[in-house]
Simulated assay, not measured.
Amino acid sequence: MMTEANPTQNTYLDNPAIYSQLDELLRVRFHVKRLRLNSQQKLISEKAGYRQAIRKGRGMEFNEVREYAAGDDIRHIDWKVSARTQKYHTKLFTEELERPVLCLLEQSPKLFFGSQTRFKSVQALNIAALIGWITLQEGDRFGGYVFNHKAHQWVEAKHQAKTVLQFLSAASTLQQQVTKPGSQTDWQQHLAQVLPYLKSGSRVYLIGDFLDVEADFFKTLSNFKSHCEIVLIHLFDPIESNLPTQGLLKLTDGESQTDFDTFSSAQLADYHAQYESRFEQLQQLSHGMQIPLLSVSTQENALESLRAQKVVT
């Protein structure tokens, strides 16, 4: 079982199971050729019980104002210019050819945990790297928002390799600031930070734990969903849902510690019931809002997991 990284030991920074290695994230680019991201509509159709979602079109950008001509959409008349010139004028728009694809990425102490293969924070960044490079090769713009318990950074979506690199580098830096596990993640605060940046037609991937999100989390997501595609990607470690029977274990949330007797059937049953209850609530809320919810384990190959769940094809 992995141990908690000691903040006084820099050697952990070179351990790819505990901290992401930027060169490996860059090499992901060469493993995603000819892959594509599926839309929210496609993911919803793959989930039994979901109704078909309304397809969100790409955004429209203002181009110019010209004199009104027969056949123009009267809804686009610019009344201010028309009043000033005493002639009807209409606004012209062009469709955005590059869709903004955004990753909202958690790198908080809550993800600073892993039982065998890698930490949840590392797997989260693996997924973001896959989405970034696939987005770029599809001809769309990639950007996003990454945060930990101390800071956050917004990266404007652009169709440039250096923008993907900027995002991955920022995420790696914030990841390395985390040296011990914790229990709280203020997603609500960070969603409020991102909302003003969203453009109509954007595709937004939220990558994190989500089992203890704030009560208003899904209410805020409804503001996102009104003009964007939303996909939730839940990170988990197998030991979280299925504790091994290894006698007395010491459990910590980074602040307090407690003993847990895995030989006690009553304690095990209570632990599993609490976990299942939180996950079921997450499923019900996402299902009710028709937001696809995918789950990726720390022990899985991130690309193969996304393929199996139809996120990429």
Rank of each mutant, 00 (worst) to 15 (best):
K80T: 03
I77G: 04
G59E: 09
R58G: 12
W79Q: 07
D73P: 04
Y68P: 10
Y88N: 05
M60C: 06
K80H: 11
W79R: 03
D73T: 01
W79F: 02
R84L: 14
E67K: 12
A83H: 02
G71D: 08
R75C: 11
E67H: 14
R84E: 03
M60E: 07
I77L: 08
Y68Q: 10
D73G: 00
S82A: 14
T85F: 03
D72Q: 00
Y88T: 05
V65M: 06
W79L: 08
T85E: 13
R66T: 11
F62K: 05
Y68H: 07
G71R: 02
E64L: 15
A70E: 09
R75H: 05
Y88H: 01
R84H: 12
N63D: 15
Y68E: 04
M60D: 10
I77Y: 02
R66N: 00
W79I: 08
R84S: 13
A83C: 04
R84W: 04
H76G: 01
H76L: 08
E67C: 10
I74Y: 13
W79Y: 04
A70F: 05
I77Q: 09
H89D: 05
Y68W: 15
W79T: 01
I77S: 05
V65G: 06
R75M: 00
N63I: 09
H89I: 01
S82G: 14
I74M: 09
I74C: 10
K80C: 08
G71M: 06
D72F: 11
V81K: 02
G71F: 02
A70V: 07
D73E: 14
I74Q: 14
K80V: 13
A69S: 05
E61F: 04
H89P: 08
W79S: 04
F62S: 14
A83N: 04
V65E: 10
D72M: 09
G59A: 11
D78Y: 04
E61L: 15
D78H: 03
R58S: 10
I77D: 02
D78P: 01
T85G: 06
R66V: 13
R58M: 15
M60Y: 10
E61A: 13
Y88S: 06
D78I: 00
D72A: 10
R75T: 06
A70P: 04
F62D: 12
I77R: 00
N63M: 13
A83Y: 03
R84V: 05
F62W: 13
H76I: 00
F62Y: 15
E61S: 12
D73C: 02
D72E: 02
Q86L: 03
R75S: 09
R84A: 10
K87W: 06
R84Q: 12
S82I: 04
V81R: 06
A70G: 00
G59I: 09
H89Y: 12
Q86R: 13
E64S: 15
I77A: 08
E64K: 02
K87S: 14
G71Y: 11
D73N: 12
V65N: 13
R58Q: 15
E64V: 07
R58F: 13
D78W: 01
R84T: 07
R84I: 11
H76D: 05
R58N: 15
D78T: 01
D78Q: 08
I77K: 01
G71Q: 09
R75K: 09
A83K: 07
N63S: 13
R75Q: 01
E64A: 13
H76M: 06
H76P: 03
D73L: 04
